[in-house]
Design a protein around this nucleic acid. Structure first.
Length: 470
RNA sequence: GGCGGGGUAGCCAAGUGGUAAGGCCGGGCUCUGCAAAAGCCCCAUGCGACGGUUCGAUUCCGUCCCCCGCCUCCA
């Protein structure tokens, strides 16, 4: 059986991924989701695409993956946005939630089993219960400002994920500007007391009206839906500290069990060599790119084709490269179909193709995996170019198509289901074929123009006309 | 200052103690009435710099240079 190895941020080592005892081949996966105060940008989606690749590969390897992704729909930004728009929080976040799911679909992300929302009453109740337990155990305290804070000094394990030593932290300007009534500057909020700016946003709690802190939200949803110990928890590197560190502290102080067995973090994305920022004018949401004419699958290719732990330099040139590469794959796929014809018996023609999955077993080495894909493409094209001697057989083509179906299950880069060709176009194509047979080139060109006017593109190949949507 | 990730051909990017995958671009050829595609081939004596270890280093060790990120709520 396959052995999937991943780099665990907690240990910094490549580890064999093993389900827990008595869990069979089940794995739980928690992925930090978007804060719905704006459209998610491609940096966010880089993380989600990485998580999707992980899930798909694990499934290809026979694991049953239970994945949960949260939606943060209450925090400073969402409250500020709703206030600025003069509408209720829920009305402000709803369109962004919907957009997130649309974008996810465009990028072919597998849906999670659940998308818990921070404002959900059941989740709020769970957060309050967790905070209560932390209070009872002395891991939290109510400060004079009415907020509840986590007492970091009470948890010796704090800093184990990010390898931070609080003594050595340089205080940043952000900390300096905070005027909290905390015992220690590093203590973080579990429950934020209501302030006038919160308006109608707030929930009653044993500590008064307020709202949950960001970290407790993920802790509550993750353990609530997936159990006290989660197998894999993913996110961007920027979440390592303090977010994930805080999640560990909260969960491991509430329960006594390890919170997460394997942590995985993806690196950031840059745009045209610079940090993506609105002020730099290189900030893209998925819809920005779709508006420019790129497709979801092209963006997916661009995001997936760089190893998740390396910084990804997202460029228009890179998108162009994605488009070209996908075009080659599409053409190859069509050729394989033509060669396979109606042959159903599959011959496994190239054992090297297993290398694709073996590469992904190695901490999702996508570059090596894609290399196998393209090497297979070139080798089989070479054989389809041949005369009779050594030519790729229909059964071998079928074998490659079967393999490609498995590859698609992981990469999800197959072309959009081709639209069926309308009858009037079919007729024109047939007429053109007849004209070509008679070498009536002028007529052939006229028909090609007519077909183009209907929105279809015709290309002449060695094997006849090929029609595609323009 | 602390912690982490990087520097491999024009661009993107794997990888290994034994002489550099793959993608894009570019060049050549094939196919071709035209057009548009596509296919095949070629394209780093070189892997940030300098030392060291070694029969041999891009890969190990040391020193240094540069880039990026995090250091309290940004994937």
């Amino acid at each position: 059986m396959a052995t999937v190895q991943i780099l665990n941020t907690l240990t910094k080592e490549l580890e064999l991924l093993k389900p827990r005892e008595d869990e069979g081949k089940k794995l739980s996966l928690y992925t930090c989701g978007p804060t719905v105060y704006a459209y998610a940008h491609i940096g966010n989606f880089r993380a989600y695409v990485f998580e999707d690749l992980l899930q798909r590969h694990l499934q290809e390897r026979g694991f049953t993956v239970r994945r949960v992704m949260n939606l943060t729909d209450v925090d400073d930004k969402t409250i500020r946005g709703a206030h600025a728009a003069g509408i209720a929080l829920g009305d402000f976040t709803r369109p962004f939630k919907e957009a997130f799911f649309e974008d996810s679909k465009a990028l072919r992300l597998l849906p999670a089993e659940a998308y818990p929302e921070a404002t959900d009453a059941a989740q709020i109740a769970r957060m309050i219960a967790m905070i209560g337990t932390l209070m009872e155990k002395g891991h939290a305290y109510l400060a004079e400002d009415g907020s509840v804070y986590f007492r970091i000094a009470s948890f010796p394990g704090y800093g184990k994920l990010a390898r931070v030593d609080l003594e050595n932290q340089r205080s940043s300007q952000r900390v300096a500007s905070d005027e909290y009534d905390k015992e220690a500057v590093a203590d973080f909020a579990l429950w934020k007391a209501w302030v006038p700016e919160d308006g109608a946003v707030g929930w009653e709690s044993p500590w008064g009206r307020g709202r949950p802190g960001w970290h407790i939200e993920c802790s509550a949803m993750a353990t609530g839906l997936l159990g006290e110990t989660i197998d894999i928890h993913c996110g961007g590197v920027d979440n390592i500290f303090p977010h994930h560190e805080a999640e560990i502290a909260q969960c491991e102080c509430v329960g006594a069990k390890p919170f997460v067995r394997y942590w995985m973090h993806c690196a950031h994305l840059m745009v045209e060599g610079s940090k993506m920022a609105k002020s730099a004018g290189n900030f893209f949401t998925l819809r920005d790119l779709l508006d420019k004419g790129w497709t979801g699958r092209e963006v997916r290719y661009a995001l997936i084709s760089v190893h998740y732990r390396g910084a990804l330099n997202f460029t228009m040139e890179g998108l162009g490269a994605a488009r070209t590469a996908l075009g080659r794959l599409d053409a190859w796929r069509e050729r394989l179909h033509e060669t396979a014809g109606s042959e159903t018996a599959a011959e496994t023609s190239d054992p090297a193709t297993e290398g694709f999955f073996a590469a992904l077993d190695d901490d999702l080495n996508i570059s090596s995996a894609l290399a196998v894909l393209f090497e297979t493409l070139r080798e089989s094209n070479r054989r389809m170019d041949l005369g009779d001697e050594g030519k790729l057989s229909p059964a071998q083509a079928r074998g490659l198509l079967n393999w490609l179906a498995r590859v698609d299950g992981v990469l999800a880069l197959e072309p959009e289901a081709s639209q069926s060709i309308p009858p009037e176009v079919e007729e024109l194509v047939a007429a053109r074929a007849a004209a070509r047979a008679a070498k009536e080139w002028k007529k052939s060109d006229e028909i090609r123009d007519q077909i183009a006017a209907l929105g279809w593109l015709v290309k002449d190949t060695k094997d006849g006309q090929r029609i595609s949507k323009n």
